[in-house]
C-alpha cells in the first residue's frame, strides 16, 4: 500500500514535470519541423519567460498592490507576446539569412543567440537565484488515496498545459495555417509552388513556439519558486530530449515524449538516486538516437541515392 501511494505520488509529480517538458519540446519540434534546425536558443527564450514573469509580478505589485488572482492574465498575455516577438526577431535576424547555408551555420548561429539571451538575462537580473513575490503561488491541494496528494499548483499546471497543447494540436490539424505548416515541414519548394508564403509560416512557427515556451517558463518558475539564468540550458536540453524521444518534428510526439521523460526521470530519481536523474535523461537520449533515431512516433525515412 505504501508502495502504491508512493508510486502514485511519483507519477503525479512526473506528469507535472512532463507537462513542462512537453510545452518546451513543442517549440523545438515545430522549429525542427519547418527548418530542420535545432533551435538552441529556445531554452533561453523559455528562461526569459520566467524573468519577464518576475518583472510582470513586481510591476503588478507596485501598481495595484497585489499580484495574485486575475492580474495574472494580462501578465501572461504580455509575456507571451514579448517572448513570441523575440522569437520572430531571432528568426528574422539570425536564421533567415542562413536558410540556404547548409546545416552547420544555423546551428552555430542558434548557439550564439542562446549566449546572447543568457548573458543579457544575467546582466539585467543578476546571477543570483530569483524568487517570485509571495502570495502568487496558490497553496493547498487535494488528497488522494492515503498520503498521495495533488497540489492546486499541479492542477493548474496540468490544466493549463493540456489546454495549450490541445489548442495547438487543433490549430495545426484543423486550420488553414496549420495545414500550411505541415506542408512547409514536408517541402519548402513544393509548398511555395502551392502558393504558401513559406516565410510567413516560419514566422508563425516562431511566434507560437517561443510563446508557449515563455508561458512554460513562467509556470516553471511559479512551480519551483526560484530559478536563475541557467534555467534555460538545463530545461532546454531536457525538453529537447523529450522532442527527440517522441520523434522530432512530430507534435503529438513532443507531448508524449515530454510526459514519458518527466515520468521516467521522476521514477528514476525516486527509486534510484536523485543525482542520477540527469544521467538517466541523457542515457535515454543516447539509446533512442542509436537504436531509433526517428523517435517513438517518427517515421523512418529512407535516404535517396
Amino acid at each position: 500500500m505504501q508502495f502504491i501511494q508512493q508510486l502514485i505520488q511519483q507519477l503525479i509529480n512526473g506528469i507535472t514535470i512532463g507537462a513542462f517538458y512537453s510545452l518546451v519540446a513543442l517549440g523545438y519540434t515545430m522549429v525542427y519541423g519547418v527548418l530542420k534546425l535545432i533551435n538552441f536558443a529556445h531554452g533561453d527564450m523559455f528562461m526569459w519567460g520566467a524573468y519577464l514573469g518576475l518583472t510582470g509580478f513586481n510591476v503588478a505589485l507596485a501598481m495595484v498592490g497585489q499580484a495574485g488572482g486575475w492580474s495574472i492574465l494580462p501578465i501572461v498575455i504580455i509575456l507571451m507576446l514579448t517572448v513570441a516577438l523575440v522569437g520572430v526577431l531571432v528568426e528574422r535576424i539570425a536564421y533567415r539569412p542562413l536558410r540556404s547555408a547548409g546545416r552547420l551555420a544555423p546551428v552555430i548561429s542558434a548557439l550564439g543567440v542562446a549566449f546572447i539571451l543568457q548573458s543579457l538575462a544575467r546582466n539585467v537580473y543578476g546571477a543570483s537565484y530569483k524568487t517570485y513575490p509571495t502570495g502568487i503561488t496558490p497553496t493547498g491541494g487535494l488528497s488522494l488515496a492515503g498520503s498521495a496528494r495533488v497540489s492546486t499548483m499541479q492542477i493548474i499546471v496540468l490544466i493549463t498545459s493540456f489546454l495549450l497543447m490541445g489548442a495547438l494540436y487543433l490549430f495545426v490539424q484543423r486550420t488553414r495555417i496549420g495545414t500550411a505548416m505541415r506542408a512547409v515541414s514536408l517541402d519548402h519548394d513544393t509548398s511555395r509552388l502551392m502558393g504558401i508564403d513559406v516565410n510567413r509560416i516560419i514566422a508563425i512557427v516562431f511566434l507560437i513556439g517561443p510563446g508557449l515556451g515563455g508561458v512554460a517558463g513562467m509556470i516553471v518558475a511559479l512551480y519551483y519558486g526560484s530559478f536563475d539564468f541557467t534555467l534555460g540550458w538545463s530545461y532546454g536540453l531536457k525538453a529537447f530530449i523529450a522532442a527527440i524521444l517522441g520523434g522530432i518534428g512530430n507534435i503529438p510526439g513532443a507531448m508524449l515524449g515530454g510526459m514519458l521523460l518527466g515520468i521516467i526521470e521522476t521514477l528514476g530519481a525516486g527509486y534510484l538516486s536523485p543525482q542520477w536523474k540527469d544521467v538517466i535523461a541523457y542515457a535515454i537520449l543516447i539509446i533512442i538516437l542509436i537504436f531509433r533515431p526517428t523517435g517513438l512516433l517518427g517515421e523512418r525515412v529512407a535516404e535517396k541515392v
Binding site: 552555430i108 548557439l111 543567440v113 549566449f115
Partner: peptide, 17 residues
C-alpha cells in the same frame, strides 16, 4: 567579462551571416 558571453554570441551570429 560580464558581457563576454553576449559578445561571443554576437560574434557567432554575425560571423555566420
Amino acid at each position: 567579462k560580464d558581457w563576454r558571453d553576449a559578445w561571443l554570441g554576437f560574434a557567432m551570429v554575425a560571423m555566420m551571416i
